[in-house]
Design a protein around this nucleic acid. Sequence first.
RNA 1: UGGGGCGUGGCCAAGUGGUUAAGGCAUCGGGUUUUGAUCCCGACACUCGGAGGUUCGAAUCCUCCCGCCCCAGCCA
Length: 551
Amino acid sequence: MTDSDKPINFIQQIITDDLASGKTSKVVTRFPPEPNGYLHIGHAKSICVNFGLAENFSGGCNLRFDDTNPEKESDEFVQAIIEDVQWLGFKWHGDIRYASDYFDQFYQWACDLIDQDKAYVCELNAEQMREYRGTLTEVGKDSPYRARPATESRALLEQMKAGEIAEGTMTLRAKIDMASPNINMRDPVLYRIKRIAHHRTGNKWNIYPAYDFAHGQEDAIEGVTHSICTLEFAANRPLYNWFIDNLDVPSTPSQYEFGRLNLNYSITSKRKLKQLVDEAHVDAWDDPRMPTISGLRRRGVSPAAIRNFCDSLAVAKTDGVVDMAQFEHFIRDDLNNNARRAMCVLKPLLVTFTNYDQSELFTASSHPQRDDLGSRELPFDRQIYIDQSDFSEDTSLSRKKFKRLVLGEYVRLRGAYIIRADEVIRDNDGEIQEIRASVVENTVGADAPEGVRPRGVIHWVSALNSLDCTVNLYDRLFNQPLPDSAEGSFTDHINPDSLKVLEGCKAELSLANVESTERYQFEREGYFCRDSEAETLVFNCTIGLRDNWKA
RNA sequence: UGGGGCGUGGCCAAGUGGUUAAGGCAUCGGGUUUUGAUCCCGACACUCGGAGGUUCGAAUCCUCCCGCCCCAGCCA
């Protein structure tokens, strides 16, 4: 389906209407992560939605860090997020924004609210505040500090700001309605005391604005027209609007919510991903098994694959679980079209030719359908490696069932000769050590001669001219489709075999100095890229080839 | 339970009262192929959470019922 005949989603419909009615003249969206962790595939959807909408309607999308809670945030996360958004290929409008750049303005607005008798300094502690808030079925009751005169609240807020008040003893609250059926409207906290340094403002502040008191105003300051977030914020929308209505803000943004992405066999919660890192279930945020953008990058997934996948997802209000197979489809689709082909033998089995003692150099295309990707040279010698799984002594195996090398029979070496296996050499333990074979003359780039029927085509590498390498094979990180909702903790469902390290693999020579940003298909195996961290030649398996072979 | 949101094939989904309920993923057949890949062709919802009702006509409108998700942080 092309972009033009793809049905428009409900947000595009709203924007179209707003543009038509004149409510909006230029669309401005924003991607507003809190720098408290690394971005994951769920964020990718949000990024694609927000940047995509801006692009769609010739508007702009801001990148804004919602850094209102210094306790969890750091510059490391800011930098990682910037890198990820850039890597995905998106260009934000203007400079990078930070909520912390607006702290002075927020403080002024807080004072305005107090002066309007719409906010007050409350001295209830956390536990008391919870009691006063009521429950889902019972209304709350007013704080005893609710009627405090504005002048007193102003003075107290000043002291809070100056660092003269202990953490947890006072908050600034909006004066809305303790009986509201929407709990978010029961006098929400605007400012809380945190006497802690902020990664950007240092020790300037001792109080920090809460999400609700910041987000809508950030949008208004930046002229965001359509503030798009995920469903769990729907209950915050009335509060978002309350601040916009009661403050002298420069513009009037509107919030819309869509369903966040859930992927089975995976987790899209920053908190839980952080736990995987902190408890060393994985090596780091960019461990190739992680569903983080940086993990996917290191794994070899392309930005295009991620974007195509996200674009295939609906922007709607349903909260479903997308099948990992759908993501894998887009990963393979992009890699199949763009990855150069190469050969690498994962579990080497030595084959010695008894009727061949030369050295030749064959040329193989780098992609069967794409001449523009060029070719590479394959040295061929009297000894080669094939994969252990590509040889069998069982001559009763049918040609349909086993399209590989069988003792006494023929197989085609990809891009090279047809060969015949003649003899099996065993070591002292009876294990197969080597195959003695013979080359069928004049079969390179030519059809098989009469009477020679190769069972199939297998990959190989010269034993004399190849590269030693290590290959990391990955399996899903969890062995439950819904690690979050399964019995026990999600960490109970971590797949203990999610990483398999293969040493002593043999790669073709052309792979000697490749960059980690280049992606390859190791023919008949899968897609791989060089690991970006390892100093030696290490390849990470992005994903295996689709396998329709029914054994 | 108060409020908010959502229920269309195994999964994601289009559909905004009127042709045979799009499409993608998955699955299953078949063809091509020097990758058991790719590619190509074909199959795959008498039915839209359930029950009533309105209508010549309902996935779309109404009523009731059932189920799932979110909100009771001085997190975002």
